[in-house]
């Protein structure tokens, strides 16, 4: 692995409204824009439920786990740029910026098919120290 190496993408074929309902419980967040398309329309934000931002971030974390199974995340600096809607196909991808003796630094992102970049982040991971 060298700077510029592309990460193996983590793909979500269709963001699930059922998962959004679960995340409303995980986050204790009953905001209806994650549950009810009518609430999204009323807010002028679209016509499908909007995936929770932390769920989008979880896809990026899954990308790191997929590509660095023997490493732990050290830092993650994330920008939320746009929404991911129910039914969207999204692809978490990235590339290596720097490789050190004990870790790797990457630029990663979550792109929505036909919808642009929803999340962008810089991440660093290091070799797992625990037994």
């Amino acid at each position: 692995m060298t700077p510029g190496t592309l990460l193996t993408p983590f793909v979500v074929e269709a963001v699930s409204p059922g998962a959004m309902r679960e995340w409303s419980v995980f986050l204790a967040d009953p905001n209806p824009i994650h549950l009810d398309a009518e609430a999204v329309r009323a807010a002028g934000l679209g016509d499908r439920p909007i995936n929770q931002g932390p769920a989008n971030l979880a896809y990026l974390i899954n990308l790191l786990s997929l590509n660095f199974p023997e490493m732990d995340i050290v830092t993650l600096e994330t920008r939320f740029n746009g929404n991911v809607f129910a039914g969207d196909r999204c692809v978490a991808g990235g590339h290596v910026i720097e490789v050190g003796e004990t870790g790797v630094r990457c630029e990663i992102w979550l792109d929505v098919d036909g919808g642009g970049r929803a999340v962008s982040a810089n991440a660093s991971v290091r070799k797992r120290a625990r037994p």
């Binding site: 807010a43 934000l45 931002g53 971030l57 995340i73 050290v74 830092t75 600096e77 939320f80």
Partner: peptide, 13 residues
Amino acid sequence: ADGPMIVGSIVTF
């Protein structure tokens, strides 16, 4: 209900 938005997050583990 007026729609707060998270725009960024930095975590160190």
